[in-house]
């Protein structure tokens, strides 16, 4: 792994964001709209329950922000690849002395940057307008965010591999894949509301453990080491599977000559 190459690839995306306000707006606009919608819903539900400004449904806002961490992380990976496809630059990168691990590491880095921007904005807005302070979650915030970041990378690798394999027709996967797992992740409701058999499926996702853990912390139950341990272990499994899938797909697209098709069509 050559840090100079990773740094150059990350800078390339940063150049893009600083030169193209539409791209930057995408990192800001959608999360803000989502937060505002859920913020008012939270306020409405809290008022119906007779709560104050920071009432019993405030954790929904935590769900919004946490979900965005995972979603932006995944998008960082998938969109980095798509950006090269859209700009017809993919072949320049794939014939350069760049290892797949370096390419992915740069996409992970971009995911991190996108998250930093998004979280900063959402944290400020939710505090100012809805009296929800993300920092109230305390030190648990760091491991939770870390787990979601890594899971986002894993899903991003799956999505990217599928786009590589099936071409631009599969582009929508960059947005669709996270939403396929959202119902199971139990972002806005506890796992307990699901049917028993579905709970087992839900708990195979690291993200589910993070959201359960987050709700526990916000309900004053403290940090759940068990959920955290599950999230870490499952993340390791998903990351490994994603890396294997990505590597295998790359070999397949090279064998089938699909890389040039994706890059030039």
């Amino acid at each position: 792994m050559n840090p100079r190459i990773v740094f150059a690839l990350v800078c390339r995306y940063l150049f893009l964001y600083t030169r193209n306000w539409v791209r930057l707006a995408e990192v800001v606009f959608w999360p803000t709209m989502e937060l505002v919608t859920w913020g008012f819903l939270t306020r409405y539900l809290d008022s119906k329950m007779g709560g104050g400004e920071a009432g019993p449904f405030t954790w929904l806002l935590g769900g919004v922000i946490f979900w965005d961490v995972m979603f932006r992380s995944q998008q960082g990976v998938a969109l980095s690849f798509l950006e090269d496809v859209w700009t017809r630059n993919l072949l320049n990168i794939f014939v350069a002395p760049v290892r797949p691990a370096e390419y992915l590491a740069s996409a992970f880095g971009i995911g991190l940057v996108r998250i930093a921007i998004t979280v900063l904005i959402l944290w400020s807005l939710s505090w100012v307008f809805f009296r929800f302070n993300l920092l109230d979650i305390g030190p648990a915030l760091v491991p939770f965010f870390g787990c979601l970041l890594v899971f986002g990378w894993a899903i991003g690798m799956f999505a990217t591999a599928l786009i590589m394999r099936f071409g631009q027709a599969a582009e929508n996967l960059a947005w669709a894949v996270p939403f396929l797992i959202q119902p199971l992740t139990a972002v806005y409701y506890p796992v307990a509301v699901m049917p028993g058999w579905l709970q087992w499926a839900a708990l195979t996702l690291p993200s589910t453990h993070v959201f359960e853990g987050m709700r526990g912390v916000m309900a004053g139950l403290g940090f759940s080491w068990s959920h955290f341990a599950w999230a870490v272990a499952l993340n390791a499994v998903f990351l490994l599977l994603a890396a294997l899938f990505y590597g295998r797909t790359l070999a397949t697209v090279r064998a089938k000559g699909l890389l040039t098709k994706v890059a030039t069509n």
Binding site: R4, I5, F7, A8, L9, C11, R12, F15, L16, R19, N20, E83, D84, T87, R88, N89, L91, N92, I93, A96, P97, V98, A263, T264
Partner: peptide, 23 residues
């Protein structure tokens, strides 16, 4: 002729990036 450099970046930024990739 069928491959391009990212259109949103300046020529200098694109060449800097590839200079880094090729060391």
């Amino acid at each position: 002729a069928y491959v391009a450099l990212p259109g949103n970046l300046t020529v200098g930024q694109n060449l800097w990036t590839f200079a880094q990739l090729y060391g």
